[in-house]
Design a protein around this nucleic acid. Structure first.
Lengths: 191, 191
DNA sequence: CGTTGGCTTGAGAGGGCTCAAGGCCAGTGG
DNA sequence: CCACTGGCCTTGAGCCCTCTCAAGCCAACG
């Protein structure tokens, strides 16, 4: 539903009917299958994605060939490689659908134009990125303060639905340890 | 110099003379001594700081009583606890001057008013936070990809001036390890 | 019904920590 | 000008958290 995007924007700023129209015209609704790539490293990052239904992940492959998940995007979250978005240099990350996912896709050049036409959207995105940056600060804090094992328990008790929703190896790649170690942790927790 | 702030804003957006006036009126220039606190955990976070000259750090104290530096702000950087800024809940962090530091301080309520009066500033901050968020993504990547030792060498070769500028125990608290381990690394590197 | 992808188990190893002590320098007060 | 003090850096021994590697198991799926 494109209504979902509109509702999300309206939580932060007011929109006039004609602005609403312009906004919807700038987006394209796209579906991606499970495991399908929305973006690969080296490619230009042209799009910003708003998740309507499903789940995206951003990751890279380290020197040892291991996938490392930098972040997830659930319903009503945005995702893009912020540093590469609209720039002339290639992205550093993969973006991939964890489940079958429906997004509202925004092209960078259309976004530029749209932000000029609908100035209140500047505020929407400003608030959005400010929160995202704040969340990144808190995440850094969590990683400093807690051991990997504690990190898992923290995550497990704060976001139980999410933990059930993703395969464990993805959770491990997000929390920064190996699937083997996650097994060990869970075994300990049960006994 | 307040000119420095204006120059920084003008790199992203154009300003009319009267807007320039309003902007400068919203800020207050403040000096902090070395080790002085700009903010403590539990306090409301009322201010956003633009560093004119000097160096700020944001940190917290973990369960074991160890200081953990979440980020630094050099000249022309902004710093605040983004999640607590302007909200009714207390901050989670300390903000402290590493050196004697001169800042342009912006009160949250004045910022709200200012952003309404000078809409182009919305864009300035949107771009600013977008970049900051992108940088946080890249930082997450660095922490995933490299060992603590490699992290230090990476940092040392990319920002040698910065490494010379801060005491080593602060660098350790930023890179996420102990001063003792930093000593060990440096010893190894020399031999 | 075979294959593949995801989870588990276990042994061995290493990166980075803790704790405790000592050394060195800069600032401060007498 | 000198001694003292406190802050910062170094050293070393021992240890633990987490990884690596290798194998086995189970469920899903073609």
């Amino acid at each position: 539903m494109s209504q979902q995007l509109i509702d999300h924007i309206k939580k932060t700023v007011d929109l006039k009917p004609d602005e609403l129209e312009r906004i919807l015209n700038a987006f394209r609704k796209v579906r991606y299958n499970k495991k399908e790539s929305l973006q690969r490293p080296g490619e230009l990052c042209r799009y910003n994605y708003f998740v309507v239904k499903g789940l995206l992940r951003m990751f890279f492959i380290d020197r040892k060939g291991v996938e490392r998940t930098v972040q997830f995007a659930l319903e009503n979250w945005w995702m893009t490689d912020c540093l590469a978005y609209g720039s002339a240099k290639g992205s550093d990350f993969y973006i991939q659908a964890v489940e079958t996912t429906e997004v509202m896709r925004l092209d960078f050049h259309l976004q530029e134009k749209l932000l000029n036409e609908v100035p209140s959207l500047e505020k929407y995105f400003r608030v959005l990125y400010q929160k995202a940056y704040g969340a990144a600060q808190m995440r850094t804090r969590l990683f400093y303060e807690w051991s990997r094992e504690e990190l898992f328990h923290h995550f497990n008790s704060n976001y139980p639905d999410f933990v059930k929703r993703v395969p464990q190896y993805l959770l491990a790649s997000f929390l920064g340890f190996t699937p083997e170690y996650l097994s060990e942790i869970r075994k300990k927790a049960v006994s």
